[in-house]
Amino acid sequence: MPMRKQITIRFLHRTVLFLFSFVITLCALFVLGNVQNFLDSSQSMILRFLLGAGGLLCIFSIFAFLFELYYIFHLRTVRYLGHCIMSGIACIVGLGTAVLAAVILLLSSGVQLS
């Protein structure tokens, strides 16, 4: 049974790392798109991808964080403390970028107050 747990936590770490790098890349692409005058449709597509990737990063980071907390308390070791901190930071980054992308999409669509 411990082998299965190790495979699960390694999968979560790799997924969080991939999604974190994907979110950073999409943020850079959005900023460069603003500088290079991309079309509005391209920018909104980048923002929708950023919204989805940020949400997934937040969800996977929460799962990784919970697994790591379980390992810290169950195994009584601080081996996973660094990973736990990184998962918390990745969760905050994912949530922040998802919220920011949603706000930009909402504002760009033209909010009409009655």
Results as ranks from 00 to 15, higher is better:
1 M>K: 07
2 P>R: 05
2 P>G: 05
2 P>T: 05
3 M>H: 15
4 R>S: 15
6 Q>M: 14
6 Q>E: 15
7 I>A: 12
7 I>Q: 13
8 T>V: 11
8 T>M: 11
12 L>Y: 04
12 L>F: 06
13 H>N: 02
13 H>D: 00
14 R>H: 07
16 V>R: 12
16 V>W: 09
21 S>W: 01
22 F>I: 11
23 V>P: 01
25 T>A: 10
25 T>Y: 10
29 L>M: 07
29 L>G: 04
32 L>Q: 09
33 G>I: 02
34 N>W: 02
35 V>S: 02
35 V>T: 02
36 Q>W: 11
36 Q>V: 13
39 L>V: 07
41 S>C: 09
41 S>R: 10
43 Q>T: 11
43 Q>C: 12
45 M>A: 09
45 M>T: 08
46 I>F: 09
46 I>A: 09
46 I>R: 02
47 L>K: 06
47 L>C: 10
50 L>F: 06
50 L>H: 05
51 L>E: 05
52 G>A: 01
53 A>V: 09
55 G>K: 00
58 C>F: 15
58 C>R: 15
58 C>Y: 15
59 I>L: 03
60 F>W: 01
60 F>C: 02
60 F>T: 02
60 F>K: 00
62 I>R: 14
62 I>W: 09
63 F>E: 01
64 A>T: 03
65 F>M: 12
66 L>R: 14
66 L>H: 14
66 L>K: 13
68 E>G: 01
69 L>M: 08
69 L>F: 02
70 Y>S: 09
71 Y>K: 11
71 Y>T: 06
72 I>M: 11
72 I>G: 05
72 I>F: 09
73 F>H: 12
76 R>E: 04
76 R>M: 07
77 T>L: 14
78 V>F: 09
78 V>K: 09
79 R>C: 12
80 Y>V: 07
80 Y>D: 14
81 L>W: 05
83 H>E: 07
85 I>N: 06
88 G>M: 03
88 G>F: 04
88 G>R: 00
89 I>D: 07
89 I>S: 07
89 I>N: 03
89 I>F: 05
91 C>S: 15
91 C>P: 10
92 I>C: 08
93 V>M: 12
93 V>L: 11
94 G>I: 00
94 G>H: 00
95 L>R: 05
96 G>A: 11
96 G>N: 03
96 G>T: 05
98 A>G: 04
98 A>Q: 07
100 L>G: 03
101 A>Q: 02
102 A>W: 12
103 V>C: 12
103 V>W: 15
104 I>Y: 08
104 I>W: 06
107 L>G: 00
108 S>P: 01
108 S>L: 13
109 S>G: 10
109 S>P: 05
109 S>R: 12
110 G>Q: 04
112 Q>D: 09
114 S>D: 09
